[in-house]
């Protein structure tokens, strides 16, 4: 074909584009959460599947409503919000609460700020904070995982609902389920420490997905390898928790638990790997990522040791989210050619 009869396109350079896209990043995060969801369903049975599914449906439905059409949902971010919210809820919560939480996450956590990329706080944690404030009893009732020993000598069956999942608003729960304390609660209020191996595998009580550190670390490791999350953030969160809790444990070994227990209990892994690393609500600079992560770690230790609740990851991340604009401003990269030596050179010539 001769060049004469062609229609040529005009676009400003650069004319090449790296293959990564925002939807691809989001859906990859969703994919790495699937093992965590499977782990949660294994531990908490159909209740976990119901809670997570309804939280996702609430988030996606609200996104669709507020974004004014089905298209924006395709970026996958609302699915992540719903999944993360679902994973932080106790398996026994009524499903309407999970749906409400998903709606609040997207509406108050994201769209009041202007939608994707504009929000200050992690939307899933905004939803969870709302549920925690509104329904403290339901949010701190921790069912036992599959296989846990029952007082009557049996063990928890996989297929059993773990709480009043099907309850309606303003009506009492109708399903009796056996509940227990989380390892953090046991430690804080009863002084009983759960073996770290159980924490790592996830055969413990807790929120739906806060239990298996192993699956979370696998997913996070893959995301870090792909460059889809900033490894500096989980590393600095976990380092700060480890260093601070070791130091405090050394001072008060009888009342304050040590680093291994602190690292693998509660929502720390899920929070450090999947929530603190939310790109929108974490710093863009590398120095900022270290400061932000260390801040979260320190707040987690402070809240867990001295706070009224056994767990503090949610508030630690939300507080540091609020600091992100300041951290970013304070840690702007030094522009090429503006080192101290460069400034001297410029002064010398003018």
């Amino acid at each position: 074909m001769t060049p004469a009869d062609r229609t040529l396109e005009l676009a400003a350079s650069p004319h090449l584009k790296a293959p990564d896209s925002t939807p691809r990043i989001m859906w990859t995060v969703v994919a790495t959460l699937i093992p965590v969801v499977v782990g949660a369903v294994w531990a908490f049975g159909p209740s976990a599947a119901l809670v997570i599914g309804v939280a996702v449906a609430g988030a996606v439905g609200t996104e669709r409503l507020l974004a004014g059409g089905p298209d924006p949902v395709r970026d996958g971010s609302a699915v992540i919000t719903g999944l993360l919210l679902g994973l932080t809820l106790p398996a026994g919560v009524p499903l309407w609460m999970a749906a409400l939480g998903g709606a609040v996450s997207i509406a108050l956590g994201k769209w009041v700020f202007g939608g994707l990329g504009q929000n200050v706080f992690n939307p899933a944690l905004v939803g969870r904070a709302f549920l925690q404030a509104a329904f403290p009893a339901a949010m701190t009732t921790w069912p036992l995982p599959t296989g846990a020993a029952l007082p009557d000598g049996g063990s928890v069956a996989w297929a059993a609902l773990r709480g009043p999942n099907l309850a309606l608003p303003l009506m009492g729960g109708s399903v009796d389920a056996v509940t227990g304390a989380t390892p953090l609660g046991l430690r804080k209020f009863e002084g009983v420490e759960t073996p770290v191996a159980d924490l790592f595998i996830g055969s413990i009580g807790g929120s739906v997905g806060e239990t298996s550190a192993l699956l979370i670390l696998l997913g996070g490791g893959y995301l870090a390898f792909r460059g889809y999350l900033d490894w500096r953030i989980p590393v600095s969160v976990l380092l700060a928790v480890a260093v601070l809790s070791s130091a405090l444990h050394a001072l008060r070994p009888d009342t304050l638990p040590g680093a291994p227990f602190m690292l693998f209990s509660g929502g720390l892994m899920l929070g450090a790997v999947y929530m603190a690393t939310d790109m929108v609500t974490s710093p863009v600079t590398r120095a900022g990522a270290w400061i932000y992560g260390a801040g979260i770690g320190a707040l987690v230790v402070i809240i867990r040791y001295w706070g009224g609740l056994p767990e503090g990851v949610m508030y630690a991340i939300l507080l540091m989210n609020a600091m992100v604009p300041f951290i970013d401003r304070a840690t702007q990269p030094r522009v090429f050619g503006t080192s101290r030596r460069n400034r001297r050179e410029r002064e010398a010539t003018t």
């Binding site: 925002t22 990329g117 790109m279 702007q332 990269p333 090429f336």
Partner: peptide
């Protein structure tokens, strides 16, 4: 095949541009 996608998404502050800029600017901002 090299044609770039037509649609843009909002900035999600992923910071890739900061890691790419050879003169260490903050292209996102």
């Amino acid at each position: 095949r090299e044609r770039k996608p037509e649609r843009s998404w909002p900035c999600i502050a992923c910071a890739r541009c900061l890691g790419a800029c050879p003169v260490f600017l903050n292209p996102s901002r």
